[in-house]
Write a protein that binds this DNA or RNA. Sequence first.
DNA 1: GCCTGTGAATCCATTCACAGCT
DNA 2: AGCTGTGAATGGATTCACAGGC
Lengths: 211, 211
Amino acid sequence: MVKEFKIPDATIERVALYLRPLEGLMERNIRVVSSEKLADMCNVNPAQVRKDLSFFGEFGVRGVGYEVNDLLREIKRILASDREWRLGIVGLDDMGMALVQHKDFQQRGYRFIAAFDSDSRKIGKSLPNGLVIQPLSMIKQAAKELRIEIGVITTDAVEAQRVADLFFEAGIMAVLNFSPVHLRKPECCLVENVDFTLNLDHLAYELNRIG
Amino acid sequence: MVKEFKIPDATIERVALYLRPLEGLMERNIRVVSSEKLADMCNVNPAQVRKDLSFFGEFGVRGVGYEVNDLLREIKRILASDREWRLGIVGLDDMGMALVQHKDFQQRGYRFIAAFDSDSRKIGKSLPNGLVIQPLSMIKQAAKELRIEIGVITTDAVEAQRVADLFFEAGIMAVLNFSPVHLRKPECCLVENVDFTLNLDHLAYELNRIG
DNA sequence: GCCTGTGAATCCATTCACAGCT
DNA sequence: AGCTGTGAATGGATTCACAGGC
């Protein structure tokens, strides 16, 4: 019984956050969790957890809590992360290599199915997962044939926009951007930026405050 | 003339976001920027930019805009990112290696000055930046001697808490955590979590919504 | 008794709109 | 004329507090 009104963005973000702790509980064979316990594990308020979940239906049992397994399944369904997503990556220097091997991605159904690089010395090389690195000129064709859904960019600043444009032209609507530039994009497309320096800036700021 | 009342957290986060575009303008020798232009480059509202900056003083010139160079210096001062910060890292698999080589870190003054791993086969090896990988047992001593300020964790889930505890015991108050677990920490310490799957979850959710 | 689900209340953040300076 | 700086207005998001069901 999913409610019709629009879900707050903050809720979507937090609901994704709940996945990891829930997976942790599953592994420890803990069947039921209260909003208070789950909130603890995510540094949020218990009422927040309940309200977030209530946007999508009534998953809990009063006096008891939430069935971990059910909740996990529901959240994955809500986020559409209950299926495989097909990723293509451009840039196979250290960061790119780290990502294609990243275990969390595979476990969660995010699968790299194509890899590209502009460095001709890298073309034709095989990655540990069996992928062969292709030239950028193959992006369009590969995107169609392999049905790439999400593009990942780990190039330097200079190349990033060009690569993003290639992705968009190839019909890839979503990009995860690790490069240090703000990408221009068509209205319809989505870009998520990852920038660790923001996290470090925040730590630096707080460290400086507390003296 | 810094205002005394507390700065909203959201403002701190956005102010850090303004750094990259400003650096971009510097490189292109653009001296002055309006709140509207800067807002554009960060996908925020111009009034937001002005309000954010006004928390820290009056940096702009009415009728003109903000001096890029000044603004950059001011923001760095505010965030305390106008100096070097000393990082120690644990876990030198792909992700760890990618981070120690990450150019943005060095450019912004985030310097890795120690590296540790629990894998005995890695101990004693040198990294491209000259660091030698040490065993975890060296964390406490190295933290003191080298004055490590921020600890970076790229181990797997099993090791992460143990490493975090070692950091905290060694007097390191801030941790950047790439591992997929929620770290328990003393009241006084800071943890920032990095989790790319959250970004992918968000893209998946949106892709699914728009069909 | 215990814990969820949720309207109401509160708190915070964003945006508007315009006065004030150059 | 142009763009900042900011009180006031708006709009969201968080938290409270309790009714409702196990």
